Simulated scan of single mutants.
Amino acid sequence: MIKLFVVKCFRNLSYDKTISSLTEEEAILLSFYDENDHIKLPSGGTLHHFVKYRLGEEGVNEIMMLLGEKILKLSSAKEAKIDSTPLEASRYDKHADYNSHYECKMDKAHITMVGTYPVFMTHTKGVAGDSPELITHIEALKKMNADLDLYSADGGYDSFLNHSDIWYHLDAKPIISYASNAVIKKEGEEERINHWVNKKWRIGGDVHAPMENKLKFLYEIGRKEQVGMYLRNQNMRDEAFDEQYKKRAECEKIHGYIKGTVKFDIRRVRNQSRKLYSLLSFISYQLLVLTEMQNKVGDKNSFGRYF
């Protein structure tokens, strides 16, 4: 049934039309036949019930995690990136927020990719902030046992906490764009790091330990923002930062591929079902990508030849 829903998303049809569009060969490939080899297709209502009530958001999230983990195992990429993209609504939609940046009514999809492969997504309202979503993505990548060197994000995700969370939980370098008027934070300098480590010597602070150990110690005793200040200070001094940040440019291109392959908007979707259907479209795209990875197809994220 999950494969059948992928067909629905790829063909962008209603439930009933998806069923009626299947050829006999496709029905056999999807295993819709009985012990006597007679074709037995489910109804559109059965597919809808399976998707909305049997799977639901919880089931879809579990599938997304499983797919993300499999994609990570097959990918050799070591850099992750996160970005949000609009899920456009009708201009007459009374439930969707108007986003002045995108100049449309919309919800948002926050997508983490490793290399060019989408591994995790969260759904929010159209004017929700980007930054609060990052910790959910970090926790998901941690559960997937992601092995990363870099995790990039634009200025919408810039905060000291996000810097320290990426570094601590993923053991990856945070590559987060900072404002043009950003300054070096004194509290993030080595002298102040040593000051606070030494001040907490009674609970294990060791000023002679390597810097990594001192930062972990400060993070674990609650001085997460100070750790983030140190990490951002290092980025501001790093001449290679701009080059590393450029790798994030792939995000918008892949978002375009997703929108060109499956229905990735909230037009004509009931308000209470929008999160579910955006997640379903996302995992449908993940399944397509994973299939091509498993079959060692050269051009990933390119499904135009199937239309």
Rank of each mutant, 00 (worst) to 15 (best):
261 T>Q: 04
166 I>K: 00
224 K>N: 09
107 D>N: 09
159 S>L: 07
241 F>Q: 04
139 E>I: 02
169 H>V: 05
108 K>H: 07
128 A>K: 07
250 E>C: 13
91 R>Y: 14
148 L>M: 08
205 G>Q: 00
187 E>N: 03
215 L>F: 03
27 A>Y: 05
93 D>T: 04
57 E>M: 06
107 D>Y: 03
203 I>H: 10
210 P>R: 09
87 L>G: 01
295 N>I: 01
144 M>A: 06
271 N>M: 15
287 L>S: 15
21 S>C: 11
39 I>H: 08
221 I>E: 08
65 M>P: 04
188 G>F: 09
301 N>Q: 12
7 V>R: 10
74 L>Y: 14
175 I>Q: 00
306 Y>P: 04
239 E>F: 06
306 Y>F: 15
180 S>I: 15
15 Y>F: 14
158 D>Q: 11
289 V>H: 03
247 K>V: 01
61 N>Q: 10
187 E>L: 08
195 H>T: 10
177 S>Q: 15
30 L>A: 01
46 T>Q: 11
82 I>D: 03
204 G>H: 07
56 G>F: 12
307 F>W: 04
63 I>F: 13
3 K>E: 02
32 F>G: 09
1 M>T: 06
282 F>G: 05
123 H>E: 12
105 K>H: 08
195 H>R: 15
13 L>Q: 11
299 D>E: 14
242 D>M: 14
29 L>Q: 13
263 K>I: 06
211 M>L: 14
12 N>D: 11
247 K>I: 07
15 Y>W: 10
145 N>W: 07
246 K>S: 05
74 L>P: 05
156 G>C: 04
285 Y>M: 03
114 V>D: 02
155 G>F: 00
265 D>L: 04
69 E>C: 10
